[in-house]
Structure formats: structure tokens, C-alpha cells
Amino acid sequence: MHEGLILCRFIHFGAVLLLFGVGAFRSLLFARHLLPFEASPAGPRLSRVLGWLAAIALASALASALAWLMLTAAYLSSDWSSAIDASTVRLVLSGTWFGHVWVVHLLLNALVVILNRRVRPRALLTLNALLLLTLAPVGHGAMFDGLKGQLLILNQMLHLLGVGTWLGGLLMLALLMRADHGVDLVAVLRRFSGIGYGLVALIIATGLINVRALSGGFWPEPAFAGFGLVLAVKVSMVGGMLVLAALNRQLAHGADLPLARLRLSVSLECLFGAGALAAVSLLGTLPPMLA
């Protein structure tokens, strides 16, 4: 059940983060830069690719959210058959904190599936942001009650927004660098690395607050086993992303744009991001402190 839950978390977080991040890139942060692209012959093709990607992400998000709920029912009652037992699933939804959050989250997910391509991009982005934000209260954030719990959930929301914008932006960069479409890539790259500074600072600061609140120290004890080890893997993945981001910045500021190297570097950075996400999916199922 744990393996299943880890997989669900990975797929679900990945899909929801990217849906928000790609939307933020296209209709908020780089809307102006992408105008020539929408008009170019390559525009409709890439738009179609992105449309398909969004549809796949939405379907996987909904499927993994339902599987997450069913596996939680099975896990909580220590019985595989509870996954398809309506009364146990209903009990999870009505009787637990996770369930209460999940009712809202599932409704939002269904709403995004229905409204996808039917509403304006900005409205869809708002819905995707809400979908991402309703992921913050599940997991370790629920550990503390009162103000501390609420602040930790708020912290997690900021963390998720930062991570989504970064990962979605990277995916968009990787896609934009594959086609000829009249977008001023240099301007996009420079702007993205500029925004990246803020994002990375936000992600690291909120990440540190999370670790401090959950483990009661700057690093969990034991340092390199269980939670500490997986956290170390995650931090090194993010470290790899940072090194590549710095490299991209160097490349983007050169005289001519070394597209091949940039492509490789951004793709690698996406892979590191996926690795970090895999580590996170595992982290949420591990106890942060061994009392």
C-alpha cells in the first residue's frame, strides 16, 4: 500500500505542479513574450502539444487523486478490500482531516477537468492554483494544531507555488527550445533566470522552515537514515538543479545562444526536478522525528 501511495503522490504532485506552472508561464509571466509564438506557423502545433499534455496531466491528476483516496482507505483499515468498499471510503472522506481536504481537492480537480479549454486561461490558472494550494494541508503540515499548524500550511502553500512555477517554467523552456517559432528565446531565458532567483530563494526559505518545524532542528536525526537520507537526496537534486540553472544563466548571457547545450542542460534540470519530486513523494510517508 505504501508503494502505491508513494506512486500516487509522485504522479499527483507532478501533474498538479506542472498544470499550475505551465499555466503561470503561458498566461501570466511570459504572456507578452509568447505573442509572436502564438502568431507563428509553429504556434498551433506547440499549442496542440501543450493541450494534449494538459489533458494527460489532468486525467492523471484525477486518477491518482482517486487512487490516493482508495489506498488511504485500505491503509487506514489495514485491509486491501477497503479500497473499493464504499462505506470505508465514505468514512475516510467524512471522518478524517485528510478526507475533508480531499473532498474539496477532488471537486476542484473535477471542475478543472470539466472547464479545461472552456474558460479563459487566467480563470483556468486560478483553478489550477487552488488545486495546488489544497495539496498543502495534507501530509506533515497537519501535524500541528492551532496557529503553528496554520502557518506551516501557509508555508507549504508558498513552497508549492514556488516549486510549481519553477518546474512548469522549465518544462516550457524545454519545449520552446525544440521548435522554431519567432519567440525571443534570449529574452525569455534571461527573464526566467531573473525570476528564478526569487523562486529559488522562496523555495529554499520555505523548505528550511518546513524541515525546522517538522524535525525540530536544522536537519533531522538520524542525519542519513530514513527521513534524513531521503531529504539529503532531495536537497542534492535541488542542488543539481541550481548548478544547472547557474550554467543556463551563463549560457544565456553569452554572445550567441548555444542552443544544443542549453537544451541538454534544461532537460537535465527537468530530470533533477523529477528526482526531487520522487524524493518528496517518499518523504511524506516517513516520520520526520523518531521520538
Binding site: H2, I6, G275, A279, L282
Partner: peptide
């Protein structure tokens, strides 16, 4: 880090997932 080593790291991760999932999860 090369693509090969990255793959290696990923497989370590999945191995880790298998190892840790059998351990007891003490939370409350």
C-alpha cells in the same frame, strides 16, 4: 552528473522506497 549516474541515483531511490516501506512508521 551524467545521465548514467542519474539513472543510478533514481534506481537507488526506488530501492530505498522498497526498503523503507517495510519499516514501522511511527508518527503519533
Amino acid at each position: 552528473m551524467s545521465a548514467h549516474r542519474f539513472k543510478h541515483a533514481l534506481s537507488c531511490l526506488s530501492l530505498l522506497a522498497c526498503l523503507t516501506s517495510t519499516a514501522a512508521f511511527a508518527h503519533a
